[in-house]
């Protein structure tokens, strides 16, 4: 009797977190089927999958970065600034050093240095934001609002606002490479990032620390967690991921510019919330975020196939979906609460 009861409540305890994933999955399938039925000849074709796989990695990777910071109870509004700044540094380096007409083999070392340079800029940007938040106690939303302005400002300043083009051909050739003539390298990078971050969150000590600090930073201090270092590392990861996204953007556009991807910030926050990341910190999974990315990509790709529907309806739908999800979650949690109250009287 007791054992079945325990097993039952274990299952219930787990499923209490799962409904969100389940809901997202239902939504994902629904959107997919809807689009396939409405546009059978265009949606879900090989060409369409290929173009979708080219589109979402850049903002998807940034969304994962923002999600991590939100899990620790903060937010990183500086991801796009970081991405552009690090891409611009790499672009400036490449444009300034690679000799004209150099053979591909000669270019490779330059590319490696450029990528490392860009990743380290991302790390430094993230560390800066993390320091403002953990050392100087500036609320994350304001600190990163500031770093976004600062990084974008530096990016504009060092380029005078002009796009940096004339990258070595090899860079965009590698950046737009496709495996089996179908899977773009950017998708592979996204996949690696998502799996890696997912494992970090669910299977490592550091992941648990992130969730716990996000739940209650005071209690985590009393439990011996080093909040400063956890925050710093989280924002450094977010910065690093942003610079990866920046490198992908640079390959796609074959140039770098201070104002690329400006609307991505809000989109990424939206993805994180839709994916079940609690804006107050402590909860959410990469699985949920990935599904939210896919849902929104299906929606926007699908809508692109309607000639009479403007691209901007994507914004309407994103906003609408976000609000509907919020309302729906709220109604559900009210029901759960009532149930919990009744249970706690037992």
């Amino acid at each position: 009797m007791t054992t079945t009861k325990t097993a039952d409540s274990v299952r219930r305890g787990r499923s209490a977190r799962d409904p969100n994933l389940l809901r997202l999955l239902v939504m994902l399938v629904f959107v997919f089927v809807l689009m396939t039925v409405l546009r059978p000849n265009q949606f879900a074709t090989m060409a369409d999958f290929n173009s979708m796989m080219r589109q979402f990695p850049e903002y998807g990777i940034m969304a994962i970065g923002i999600s991590l910071t939100m899990i620790t109870g903060g937010i990183d509004l500086g991801v796009v600034g970081t991405a552009n700044l690090s891409a611009i540094v790499a672009a400036k380096f490449l444009i300034g050093t690679v000799p004209r007409g150099a053979a591909p083999a000669q270019v490779v070392p330059y590319l490696i240095i450029a990528v490392l340079l860009s990743l380290s800029v991302g790390l430094v940007c993230g560390a800066f934001a993390g320091m403002l938040i953990s050392r100087f106690n500036i609320p994350a939303i304001l600190a990163t609002l500031g770093t976004q302005q600062l990084f974008t400002g530096i990016a504009i300043g060092i380029t005078s606002g002009r796009p940096q083009s004339g990258l070595p051909l090899l860079y965009s050739r590698i950046g737009n490479m496709e495996f089996f003539r179908f899977v773009p390298i950017s998708f592979v990078i996204f996949f690696v990032v998502a799996v890696g971050v997912g494992i970090m969150l669910s299977r490592t000590r550091f992941g648990t620390y992130m969730y716990m600090m996000g739940t209650n930073p005071r209690a985590s201090r009393y439990a011996g967690l080093n909040n400063t270092s956890i925050t710093l590392r989280t924002y450094m990861i977010s910065g690093l991921l942003s610079s990866v996204a920046g490198l992908i953007m640079m390959a796609r556009a074959n140039s770098a510019k201070a104002d690329y991807g400006a609307p991505y910030t809000l989109q990424c926050v939206l993805i994180a919330v839709l994916g079940g990341i609690n804006p107050n910190g402590g909860f959410g999974t990469i699985g949920g975020v990935t599904m939210a990315i896919l849902i929104l990509q299906f929606l926007s790709s699908g809508l692109n196939m309607f000639n009479n529907i403007s691209n901007f309806y994507r914004d309407v739908i994103w906003g609408g979906v976000l609000i509907l999800v919020l309302v729906f979650n709220k109604l559900l949690s009210w029901r759960e609460e009532r149930r919990a109250v009744r249970k706690s009287m037992n």
């Binding site: 716990m212 739940t215 209650n216 005071r218 209690a219 009393y222 909860f283």
Partner: peptide, 10 residues
């Protein structure tokens, strides 16, 4: 409640 526990966590 504020220093000892992570209330919503398991």
């Amino acid at each position: 409640l504020t220093e000892g526990l992570f209330l919503p966590q398991s």
